[in-house]
Design a protein around this nucleic acid. Structure first.
Length: 427
RNA sequence: GGAGAGGUGGCAGAGUGGUCGAAUGUACCUGACUCGAAAUCAGGCGUACUGCAAGGUACCGUGGGUUCGAAUCCCACCCUCUCCGCCA
């Protein structure tokens, strides 16, 4: 959520900054509402003040046993205007909230301007893609030929866009998550969390998935109670820890790491990445979340992105870091780096991590604050990033570590997690 | 799932229709006393919007309603706790 003060005082600048995202936003409704709001609000408050003071008089008169009917008549004269005035003001404020809730974040000044992913800028490259002296298979073929990856049975059990892992591959999946968690807790200073996989609407509103992106979520209806949603990322439960909190400045920065399954309906992705594990309804992810002092968020963003990169480097997977352009960033982000891992079968880099600085955008929605130097509540900044997407990391390993005989070498750092096993072979 | 109790300021806790945005305690901040600290004493101490300011407005789980007036009464929802049942 953007600062409504900023919209009121500097609408043109906001509109210009938001236009960088590609779709110019029409603010004529906002302007009309704002013009009406100002006078209506002060008039309403004036009427309320009159009512309150007259009502106090009634109380005093009655307390003294005197007749209050004259004063009561005065209040009665106010009540009609007050009622319509309050009602209209309520409507206006609701419309403001709806407009505000649907506005995306303003891109940071350092974000390259562009309309889509072709405008993204490569920041760095790490590692050299391996050369193969045999025909490279994609991860689906590698996994299926190992007899450890089974989409047919997954489809029977659940449907398309699910996978079933077996034996060594299932263990490798578990090993990856363990390895990532251990690295982030032991080397990068994160506190491990275990969090709910189902969350309420308020939490999704806080991180920006609602109200605009409900169709991307799996929704669980519960009779007459409010619905719950399957989390699309651990970002939601973890960031919402600080919702409606005023933190002591000393507790910042908060650094959390959380491994969860993620559930996405992938509505509208039809046809894309239908083969394999790239785009699933359910996938595991190790998520990094930070809540920081506003002055520290840019620095924290760089550090957090490095924390994700370290995982790829330890796994010896070639990757590149992209700065997303204004038109390709997510709704809530002020700035995003994507990490893309090399997939030899696709002969390209594919997204495996997305690390974003949200500035105060999420914090304002969540009312997540801390007490600043002057002991005044001030909005925190929030950040998160995948460290990493487990399923896609598994894909990268299957493809990059495949051997001519169909086996898959296990990256050295994972072997302690695999009971010393150093290769996956057909079972 | 059944029965009951309850949600008030950082925490504890009073307040059941009228100077209540809210007693009191505690924590915290400032000052006095002290060589310093403790203790004691005095003052301050919720959030947001609005106004140059004085001030005004809203908020006592959330949303409605009754009333001239609601923390207080009514309705719905959310959440917590206790007991019983069931259960990984």
């Amino acid at each position: 959520m953007l600062d409504i003060q900023q919209l009121r005082s500097n609408l043109d600048a906001v509109a210009e900054a938001l236009a960088k995202r590609g779709k110019p936003i029409d603010f004529t409704e906002f302007k009309a509402l704002e013009a009406e709001r100002k006078t209506l609000q002060s008039r309403t408050q004036e009427l309320q003040a009159q009512r309150n003071s007259l009502s106090k008089q009634i109380g005093m008169l009655k307390g003294q046993g005197k007749d209050a009917s004259e004063v009561m008549a005065q209040v009665g004269a106010l009540s009609d205007e007050l009622k319509t005035s309050e009602g209209r003001l309520g409507e206006l404020l609701e419309q403001f909230n709806a407009i505000l809730a649907a506005l995306p974040n303003i891109p940071d000044e350092s974000v390259p301007v562009g309309s889509d992913e072709t405008g993204n800028v490569e920041i760095k490259r790490w590692g050299t893609p391996r050369t193969f002296d045999f025909p490279v298979k994609d991860h689906t073929d590698v996994g299926e030929q190992l007899g450890q990856l089974d989409f047919t049975t997954a489809a029977k059990i659940a449907g398309s866009r699910f996978s079933l892992l077996k034996g060594g591959l299932a263990r490798l999946h578990r090993a990856l998550a363990q390895f990532m968690l251990d690295t982030h807790t032991a080397d990068h200073g994160y506190t491990e969390l275990y969090a709910p996989y189902l969350v309420n609407a308020a939490s999704l509103y806080g991180t920006g998935q609602l109200p605009k992106f409900e169709e991307d979520l799996f929704k669980v209806l519960r009779g007459d109670q409010g619905p719950l949603y399957l989390i699309p990322t651990a970002e939601v439960p973890v960031t919402n820890i600080v919702r409606d909190e005023i933190l002591a400045a000393e507790v910042l920065p908060l650094k959390f790491v959380c491994h969860t399954p993620c559930f996405r309906s992938e509505a509208g992705s039809g046809g894309r990445d239908v083969r394999g594990m790239i785009r699933q309804h359910q996938f595991d992810k190790v998520e990094l979340v930070q809540v920081v002092h506003p002055e520290q968020s840019a620095e924290a963003h760089e550090a957090l992105t490095r924390h994700a990169e370290v995982i790829l480097e330890k796994l010896e997977l070639p990757y590149r870091r992209m700065a997303l352009c204004s038109g390709d960033m997510g709704f809530s982000a002020a700035k995003t780096y994507d990490l893309e891992v090399w997939l030899p079968a696709q002969n390209t880099y594919r997204e495996i991590s997305s690390c974003s600085n949200f500035g105060a955008f999420q914090a304002r929605r969540m009312q997540a604050r801390f007490r600043n130097d002057k002991s005044k509540p001030e909005l925190c900044h929030t950040l998160n990033g995948s460290g990493l997407a487990v399923g896609r990391t598994l894909v990268a390993i299957l493809e990059n570590y495949q051997q001519a005989d169909g086996s898959v070498t296990i990256p050295a750092v994972l072997r302690p997690y695999m009971g010393g096993l150093d290769v996956l072979s057909a079972s």
